[in-house]
Design a protein around this nucleic acid. Structure first.
Lengths: 340, 340
DNA sequence: ACACTTGCTGCAATGGTTTGCAGGCTGTGC
DNA sequence: GCACAGCCTGCAAACCATTGCAGCAAGTGT
């Protein structure tokens, strides 16, 4: 049924080798022959079977991507970057959704390992030991996790935290809550180190709350706790949580940004669509996806070359100031000062 | 590097045939032998190369999924359904993002055709002719598009429109705007037919506006047009647009739902997170993805069996009433009656 | 003791592609 | 007219797994 290289060979009256070369090493075949082959291939709608190629060359032209949850806008944006870049370099992507389960993460890379040239692991939650067992199975690139000798694309979350805190400090906030996400999150850790480093120099007191689930509901839940600590500003683990905070605040009648300022992380699409658009630290999600496939491919080319191997690629983050941050009102500031 | 069936065979001191059978036809091999083989395989971390299997059996255990845009929550939910179901039936998915470009759609299915058992096309925008050319290349299943003899999973958008309109009519609305999405959308057409059928029986006058881009901005833009026509309710093509409408309405100081009611379609996550939660027609996106892979697999099993082939699978839609719909205020109703 | 069935196992062919090697043809320089 | 180089091209092996067929040993029935 499907048209193979043999059909093309027959049609162009050459051997399969020639057809193969016409595609993969064009200047080794006579121009006229090549034209003929390509034309026949076109007519027949022939496309080489990458799987078969993979068997012999070890390079399939496929790359795998594993995400904890495709439906999470943070990861779907990242995935978008991966697919877009992959297409540009004529690769195809294998996708696996780990359903937020660390065990399936390991399992799925096993399932695709043989069919891909390498795998991009987006914010893997899996245990370091499991990760270690995967090394050697297939080339790996991590996004937002820094482990052993593995190449990784890292977003400068710590610096993002600094930017956010400086912004709040400049507005006059002196007491701000930080809502942590999942305990196992590398990005979360980074934010904490950034925050702790910046707090003294900004002269602001930070109240660390959490961990909370990094969801809308997590934000709703956290908002009340933050409020109880009498802060004038809230730094949420991500935009989803920030939106939850916003909602809860509105429900309780506290005005944003006059009573309380709110800052998120990520800058997902939704952030600019809220009734009062969200100030947030933009994470370069799509760029991260692109960078990861580039890194993967670079490492593949480098081959066994020992000194050209694993690298980290740092991507900058940037504070996007919108409308949920402003100087605290007199009242709010006073209450915060009272430390209530 | 990678461990092959030969390594296992050597390790277990049997032939490759036996190893192969131990995996694919377990009861054809002696229990003791099988145990040994499986154990060695486990130790070595062996996983069969599905690509190689595909070459000889014609069944790779991979399925392809093509979406117009992974970052669109509607499609990422659908994709989630596909990956989840695929995993349950021990398949792996190939993903392609067509970047909303009808031409890439065709191209990418070509690129994966040989490596997958079949392809799920989510709301393909491509021209019927191109679609026709793809048939025969590889088994296909459509989601939200009804074409020629192709198997498809269809969501009952028309009925959703009816539900929405009946709801509004019952609340007392007599003049409602419908904001159309992209002209080429099958779902969009369906909604219109549902709407036009329901309007007379509900005794409501519908104002058809559009097409608009199915985005937040599209909604912002459309809101003013709808307002100018003096309607008391707005039916938006999807939730993204509905949120845009909500935003614009808020900006212009018109109260939702007292002045104007708003209804969306899809029920993406965001819909329940808006300051006033959105009433919307839920589309079973994840279920649609799951149904599509089931349909694909069923058709594959049916094989060439001619009467067991293409089918349509209809999925119901359901109105989710939240807080953006209510009876129109006296004022609003009067203005609408005046037809302004 | 014999023929026959049953249950396992191995051999070898198969699938689509790439690639090292060798062979053929043409052209060049003397 | 000859040797030699340079282009092209084809042959055949290799990659990893599956599967029809045949072989072999043990068990069954008489």
């Amino acid at each position: 049924m499907a048209v193979t290289i043999h059909d093309v060979a027959k049609g162009a009256d050459v051997s399969v080798s020639t057809v193969s070369r016409a595609f993969t090493m064009p200047d080794m075949v006579n121009a006229a022959t090549r034209r003929k082959v390509l034309q026949v291939a076109e007519e027949l709608g022939y496309q080489p079977n990458r799987a078969a190629r993979g068997l012999v060359t070890g390079k399939t032209g496929n790359i795998g991507v594993v995400v904890p949850d495709v439906a999470n806008p943070f990861f779907s944006a990242m995935l978008k970057g991966c697919t877009a870049r992959a297409r540009e370099v004529r690769h195809v992507v294998f996708l696996a959704d780990a359903a937020e389960d660390p065990r399936v993460e390991a399992e799925v890379v096993g399932a695709m390992a043989k069919q891909v040239d390498g795998v991009v692991l987006c914010s893997p939650r899996m245990h370091p030991d499991h990760l270690a067992r995967l090394v050697g199975t297939t080339p790996l690139v991590l996004i937002n996790r820094d482990e052993a000798g593995l190449p990784a694309v890292l977003m400068d979350s710590a610096d993002g935290a600094r930017q956010a805190l400086e912004h709040l400090a400049a507005l006059g906030h002196r007491r701000v809550a930080h809502l942590a996400g999942p305990a196992a999150s590398w990005a979360g850790e980074q934010r904490l180190v950034g925050l702790r480093a910046a707090a003294p120099v900004c002269e602001v007191e930070t109240i660390e709350l959490g961990p909370f689930p990094p969801t809308f509901q997590g934000g709703v839940q956290a908002a009340d706790l933050a409020l109880a600590r009498g802060v004038t500003a809230i730094l949420a683990f991500n935009d989803l949580m920030a939106v939850g905070v916003l909602n809860r605040l509105a429900a309780r009648g506290v005005a944003v940004p006059s009573d309380v300022s709110v800052v998120g992380y990520d800058d997902i699409e939704m952030s600019s669509m809220t009734t009062v658009p969200l100030t947030t630290v933009r994470m370069p999600m799509e760029a991260g996806g692109r960078a990861a496939v580039d890194l993967l491919l670079d490492n593949l080319d480098a081959g066994a070359d020992p000194d050209a191997t694993p690298t980290r690629r740092w991507l900058p983050t940037q504070l996007i100031v919108r409308s949920t941050t402003a100087p605290p009102s007199q009242d709010a500031a006073a209450r915060a000062l009272a430390g209530r």
